[in-house]
Design a protein around this nucleic acid. Structure first.
Lengths: 297, 297
DNA sequence: TTAATGTCTTTTATCGTGAAAAAACAGTTT
DNA sequence: AAACTGTTTTTTCACGATAAAAGACATTAA
């Protein structure tokens, strides 16, 4: 097996959802733009849809014959990218404990364990190295630096520096900038979530990311924007791992976001600075309390 | 050919220089530590040294028979890492002009042109992407963002943020910290270079990097320290490309460094801040003037 | 009995290869 | 003639294989 067809399978599944809404599908290029894949993949998808009797396909006409059933979908796990698979495996090992700082990482062993080629693992490690959790020894193995207290402090130090600057830039944006509309929409979503926090608290993490990315984008600095990938990645796994008081934590965070949004809308730099600092401080504390003890001198 | 033996060749060349100084070589593990390679490589080196009559080798005794001649060395170009070769080729294309922002980067074409496998090019591009000059389109090609004015401004914005913070941390270091000795040594080197600037101005760039890395290390933050790689990389190629008024620029920079060092030694945060800002400002201007025009809206 | 050398095993670095996916080109339909 | 479909070419992605280099183990010398 040399390359999995997960792009096709994922696009196919997303394509099935389109069948619910229409009586006939649009042109191939249009479908490609819609699903974010090439025409080649679209044609493979259409061919299968025809085969399974979902549509009648003849040149330009693509008539929907029936609504998709659950078993028409490809299984979720077959739609993942290889690098997603590797990342998940790797993070599981890293967070599952027994991953002491200083430990060496073996490409071959990782590849065998996950059941993929070494090239993919190498590429993953190279990409992953920018998160600052691993480091390469010249023509030798990788070394795990570990998810330590020091790591969390260094990460949050940069985060605070970047976000304070981005927030200030955001507040200084002209009245007619499009971001104010985006901010307004996010505010509405926050208010809605705040009202239903008891049941929907686990939806916060996704909203959190969108909110902070919007702010960081105001910096107009690619290094600041890109750095949010590090934060997002860490918080993503941190949220998955540490479910303690999740509801309470998220409830507090939503309230802080709303205060932060208010401050931004006021364009009062002093208020923005204060609201931003307050939120970042509690985010830092949340992160710090979730770090396993006794890994650091 | 599946892997070049440049590690061996480079270590061999460095090993030859040891023969000038001693009558007999130390043990294999010691040599390994000295040259930064494994015993396996050391033994290959010793075998060749024996073959070419440079040493007599029998178990523990490794007697030097003659001083190495110029033709004993492997050619310089055979000692480069594949990634160095790829980086140089890539940067040449990028700086040679005709590399417009938005242009696509073709892995296969690059690999063919340089005469290497696609895997190495892929890995290079992934590693290189953290410099912010290229970007990947999901399951498709890479896009060149270009060495534009915007890039330089974004880069220097972060640089200034990080260096001001590091410099402040540096000045706050206790009297007995080892860095003060390192700073003293660097100061001496600067004074020496200042005196002989007329002939040695091209040695500044290396000194510059060591100086700034020392300061950044005081931040004790891996993201700040690692970011200096981006700066170093950009300035490295920038220095190679833009030789206009090199002597004058470097003369000014040395003087600014000396003032900066003085400020650090005074531990007066106000003075440190001023000296740091002044130097970074002229560094930014130097960089900005070297950017090709008409690439930016 | 410690530290070296000699030998064997494992891991890393790199390539060529082939399928998936994208992109380019050519021919049709509206 | 603009936009689509059909077909072909090119590129990306991922694997297994192999030489270089590292590392582990066994043996020997001081």
């Amino acid at each position: 097996m040399s390359k999995s067809n997960n792009v096709y399978k994922d696009a196919y599944n997303r394509g099935l959802r389109l069948l619910d809404e229409t009586k006939s599908l649009p042109s191939e290029p249009e479908l490609g733009a819609l699903l974010g894949v090439s025409r080649t993949t679209i044609r493979t998808i259409l061919a299968r849809m025809e085969e399974t009797g979902l549509i009648a396909w003849n040149k330009r006409s693509k008539t929907v014959l029936r609504v998709p059933r659950p078993d028409d979908f490809f299984p979720e796990e077959e739609t993942d990218t290889l690098s997603q698979i590797i990342e998940r495996s790797f993070m599981r090992r890293l967070l599952a404990g027994g991953a002491e700082p200083g430990m060496q990482i073996n490409e071959l062993e990782l590849a065998r364990e996950i059941g993929v080629g070494t090239t993919s693992v190498r590429e993953f490690l190279i990409r992953f190295s920018r998160f600052g959790l691993i480091e390469k020894r010249r023509n030798s193995h990788w070394v795990l630096k570990g998810f330590t207290r020091a790591f969390a402090l260094e990460l949050t130090e940069i985060r605070e520096m970047f976000e304070l600057r981005s927030a200030a830039a955001f507040a200084a944006l002209p009245e007619d900038s499009l971001v104010w509309a985006d901010l307004g929409l996010l505010e509405d979503e926050h208010r809605l979530l705040a009202r239903e926090i008891a049941t929907r608290f686990n939806e916060f993490s996704e909203l959190d990311e969108r909110f902070h990315r919007l702010i960081h984008r105001a910096s107009h600095n690619r290094f600041i924007v890109d750095f949010y990938d590090v934060i997002a990645m860490i918080f993503h796994y941190h949220y998955q791992w540490n479910k303690a008081q999740e509801r309470e934590r998220n409830e507090v965070a939503v309230a802080e976001h709303l205060a932060y949004i208010d401050a931004l809308k006021s364009r009062d730099l002093g208020k923005v600075d204060a609201a931003c600092r307050k939120h970042l401080k509690s985010a830092r504390n949340t992160l710090l309390t979730s770090i396993p003890e006794g890994q650091q001198p």
